[in-house]
Amino acid sequence: MGLLNWFSGNGDDDAPVANRQQREQCWESRDLFFKCLDNVDIIDANDKKNKDIIKKNCNIEESNFEKDCAKSWISYFKDKRISDYKKLKFKEEMDKIGAQPINLSPQEFSGMKK
């Protein structure tokens, strides 16, 4: 399992907290894996019908990603990839019809009330 087997808990062990180095390692593996998914046009890594394509094209990247990141992080990042994609698509669609974004950050919002 290598140096970073602290994450590969089987669900019974308490997963230790990642330190900065481990976090960065995980993010790097995630980025490489997602880049590979981009190349084969896969957004949803959880989808069963994509499983074979991922195995064939991104096997090393996937196993590195799963080795370097905690289980909860893996599912979080995979879900985030899907929602990020949807967000991007939505934004593109809105840009196409010329929608104006509204800034709803707390400062801007309180300014709007005046």
Partner: peptide
């Protein structure tokens, strides 16, 4: 949650 389970 089960004790020791990894969650966010």
């Amino acid at each position: 949650l089960k004790p020791g389970q990894d969650y966010l």
